[in-house]
Amino acid sequence: MPPRSLLPALALALGTSGCAAISALGSASEPLDIYDLQTPAIEAPARRGWAELVVEPPIASGALSTERIMIRPSPLQAQYLPGARWSDDTPVLLQTLLVRSLAETGAFASVGRAPLGAQGDYALLGELTDFQAESYGTGAPVSVHLRLMLRLVRERDAAVVASRTFEVREPATDDETATLVAAFDQATRRMVAEILPWAVQAGS
């Protein structure tokens, strides 16, 4: 049993610890602003193709496989915007954008996350290596950097029909959350707009 003189100190410490825990719990329950990304404008669908395309979520590191919005103050450091997140994990968010955009081209009989039958005709596989805002050093310019490696694979024989790396940088005027999200949106639109004709041609 602790000496009688330590009891008040222990009680104070326990009380302070309890208050800190309650405070942390309160801040953890504060709602985050949720942001989404839009697909680029698609021209009127052409005659629908015959092939079925399955779009897989791209592989990504643990730092990117989250709904948090990543910022890099240095090449080796990853942080996240406070009080903000994407509407889904980043790889799933990109998968959704690609499914919607590729379906709107009308170049495939169907585009989805899973094949309608036993297997699709083609699978679009990817690896996401960059999806963050960057500003290296005090006063350095801020930009959004996206880099996605894609492979179009024919399902019947697992042959790689086409592969390409898509990389986009979009400048941001400041590091405010709304400005960065707008830069992410613009960068994503540009990248998806580059992916569409490549995937359509490779899968036709």
Rank of each mutant, 00 (worst) to 15 (best):
T138K: 13
S163G: 12
T177H: 00
G49Y: 12
I42N: 11
L116W: 13
L125E: 15
W198S: 04
T165C: 03
V168I: 12
P2G: 02
A187Y: 06
Q95C: 06
G203H: 13
S27N: 02
G83L: 02
L7N: 03
V181M: 06
G83Q: 01
P73S: 04
A107Q: 05
S65M: 01
E170D: 11
A13C: 14
M191W: 06
A114V: 11
I195H: 09
I22Y: 10
L196M: 14
A44M: 03
P197D: 02
S110G: 13
P171V: 09
I34C: 03
G112K: 11
A183Q: 05
L128W: 10
V54A: 12
E170L: 15
G106K: 05
L125I: 15
R147N: 14
V181E: 02
A133T: 02
P75A: 02
G120Y: 12
M70K: 02
A162Q: 13
S110L: 07
S65D: 04
R4D: 12
A114D: 15
D88P: 02
I22W: 15
P171W: 12
L53T: 14
A158P: 05
M149Y: 12
A51N: 14
R85P: 01
P197G: 14
T16F: 12
L94Y: 10
T179L: 01
A20Y: 15
R151D: 05
E127R: 15
